[in-house]
Computed example of a mutant assay.
Amino acid sequence: MTMVKASALNRGTIVPDATSIADEHLSDVFICHCDPLISLGVASALRSTDRFHVNRIDPFQNAPPSGGHGTGAVFVCDFDTGLTLVEKAWGNRVSPRVVIVTPRDKEADVQLALSRGVLGYLLLGCQLQEVVDAVIAAGRGQRFLTASAAELVASQFGYQPLTQREVEVLTLVAMGRSNKMIANQLGVTEGTIKCHVKAILGKLGVRGRTEAANVAMRRGIVSEPMGFPAAGQGQGGRPAHLSRSLAAQVHTA
């Protein structure tokens, strides 16, 4: 994939610094999103431009097409469907061009999607024009992140990565375990755990265990406590709210 210099538009979105992505035409866009309201809103936003041939696919009923739709075909998906598409294409000569629209706002989620080959990452609350720009950019094989998603990616450069053992310790810290309890569970001395905790606090740039747990959950290093939905989601993993701009398009889809 050719990487180009990125620039920020007035609305705060990271897009390729090209002559004019708005002049491009994509033959096909497949919307494969688990939330029907988001699917309708995205479809309406794209159809309003008269630039795309939009196809809506229910990921629960039909498998998204994996290829044979021209080099400009783009798939707009929820997080899980998008990752499934790109992972199924591993080893193929041509990978699907995927844009994810999701409430998942953890740094780890964005990093995972990009590392798998996803081209666009949009968080709920984005502008309708950002959806259009993301699809156009993906059709050209270029990446597009909303400003909020880009900030999550950029934040990693201010921290040292945690080791696997430190992540294990931090997970138990976030569960409220004491150093002694963690030491007993991992089969090491309490002094060893104290050293791990000190290193964790330094790498995360925090002063205490509670702050470390909060930062770790916010960045997606550890999971939310059991019994509570992830931030931005309701019961069953469905979005707790929709972008007003996307929801408003449902009535015209």
Rank of each mutant, 00 (worst) to 15 (best):
L124H: 01
L9H: 10
D105T: 08
A63P: 14
I21K: 14
A150D: 15
L123E: 09
D78W: 02
I14K: 15
S148N: 13
T2H: 10
T252C: 07
F79V: 00
L114E: 00
L186Y: 06
C32G: 05
G227I: 11
D133Y: 13
G232S: 03
S223K: 09
M181L: 12
F228Y: 14
E87D: 02
G191M: 13
N184H: 05
K88I: 02
T102N: 02
V76I: 05
R244M: 02
S20W: 15
D105W: 07
A89V: 01
A150L: 11
V29H: 07
R97V: 13
V4G: 04
V206Y: 00
K180L: 13
Q111I: 06
S66W: 02
G82Y: 01
G158C: 08
V86M: 04
T210F: 05
A213G: 13
V222W: 10
G141D: 13
Q156G: 14
G141E: 08
C126P: 11
L145R: 11
T102G: 01
F52Y: 01
E24V: 10
I193P: 08
A174L: 15
F75N: 03
A43T: 00
R244Q: 09
P161L: 07
Q129W: 09
H69F: 13
A18W: 12
S44F: 02
V86A: 03
M217S: 14
N184D: 13
G158P: 14
S155W: 11
T81D: 00
A248G: 01
G125C: 08
T189Y: 15
F60W: 04
R140W: 00
D105P: 04
G234C: 06
M1I: 09
G139K: 05
V42C: 04
G12S: 06
P64S: 00
L83E: 00
G125F: 02
Q249Y: 01
G70C: 09
R116S: 09
T146H: 13
A212N: 13
R219K: 14
R116K: 12
I200V: 11
V173R: 15
G208I: 08
G120E: 11
T2V: 11
G41T: 03
E107D: 14
L112M: 06
G208P: 03
V4K: 04
L85N: 03
A199S: 11
V110F: 00
I193F: 09
A253D: 05
I57E: 01
A253T: 09
N55K: 14
N92D: 02
V206N: 04
A108K: 04
A45T: 08
A43P: 03
G187K: 10
I57L: 02
S48Q: 06
Q249C: 03
A134S: 10
I38F: 01
H251V: 15
H69P: 02
E24G: 12
G234A: 05
M181E: 08
A212F: 10
A248K: 13
S66D: 10
G187D: 07
